Simulated assay, not measured.
Amino acid sequence: MPKILLVDDDIELTELLAELLSLEGFDILVVHNGQEALKELEIQHYDLVLLDVMMPVLNGIETLKQVRQKYDLPVLMLSARDDDIDRVLGLELGADDYLPKPFNDRELIARIKAILRRTKVIKENNVVDIIDDEENDRKLLNFGGVELHPGRQQAIFEGKDLDLTGTEFALLQILMRHPGQILSRELLSIEILGKRLTPYDRAIDMHISNLRKKLPERNDNLPWFKTLRGRGYLLVTDK
């Protein structure tokens, strides 16, 4: 049963969400500020964090900064403020996705399941995905000196872990599986974030930007990605 840490100071909302997520088969623990969340993460492992932005004691943005310094687990940000600055900042700091309040219950469930499937925590039927190491070794991807190990969700360059988030890893993986091929932002949003692209949605763009910062310079001096305005992104080949 996937474990979710829900961090929000809205008592009524957390009670409703805890009941909803429990009925969907998730194990839920609720805390009401970022400081409590950080303490809880030191005690036990969680598969995903639902993190509100506006909270007392320690807000969601500051909490996310500290989470990313220590943990590589998916974070879905929640906020009553549909503010571009908050949304972009959260994505820059490594949030996997962002959902403004009020939101549809089914959309929240869909986003959670998409993130958990992507990080190999659960399959479509909510069963833990047990991965065979030997099989994963055969699926290893290599491009430009970067090795992707799908089973471990790990990207390595010259023996160094690139410390990608689950979303960044999934995005790089799909691009590496289709080198030189244009992948639309709509397709990437559906495949990586489990949602259709909406106007002014910059989540995929921010994850590409984060990848560009984390990836090393290529030996052939080519850029990793090319942005095709109105069309999408491609992984640049030497052809």
Rank of each mutant, 00 (worst) to 15 (best):
P2C: 10
V7D: 06
E12I: 13
T14C: 14
L16K: 08
A18L: 04
L21V: 07
L23Y: 08
L23H: 11
L29A: 15
V30Y: 03
V31M: 14
Q35K: 14
L38E: 08
K39V: 11
Y46P: 00
V53C: 09
M54E: 14
P56A: 10
G60R: 02
G60A: 03
T63F: 03
L64D: 04
R68T: 10
K70E: 11
D72N: 13
P74L: 05
P74E: 05
L76V: 12
S79G: 05
R81M: 12
D82G: 12
D82K: 15
D83A: 14
D84C: 04
V88R: 10
A95E: 07
D97I: 05
F103D: 13
I109R: 00
K113A: 02
A114I: 08
R117Y: 00
E124G: 10
N125Y: 09
V127N: 07
I130H: 06
E134M: 07
D137I: 10
L140T: 15
L141D: 03
G145H: 11
G145F: 08
E147K: 14
P150M: 10
A155F: 06
I156P: 01
K160E: 11
D163K: 10
T165R: 04
E168L: 08
E168W: 03
L171T: 04
M176D: 08
R177K: 09
H178W: 02
P179S: 10
L183W: 01
S189V: 08
E191Y: 05
L193C: 03
R196W: 01
L197F: 09
T198M: 12
A203N: 07
L211F: 03
K213P: 03
K213I: 09
L222S: 09
F225Q: 02
K226W: 07
R231F: 15
R231E: 15
K239F: 13
K239T: 10
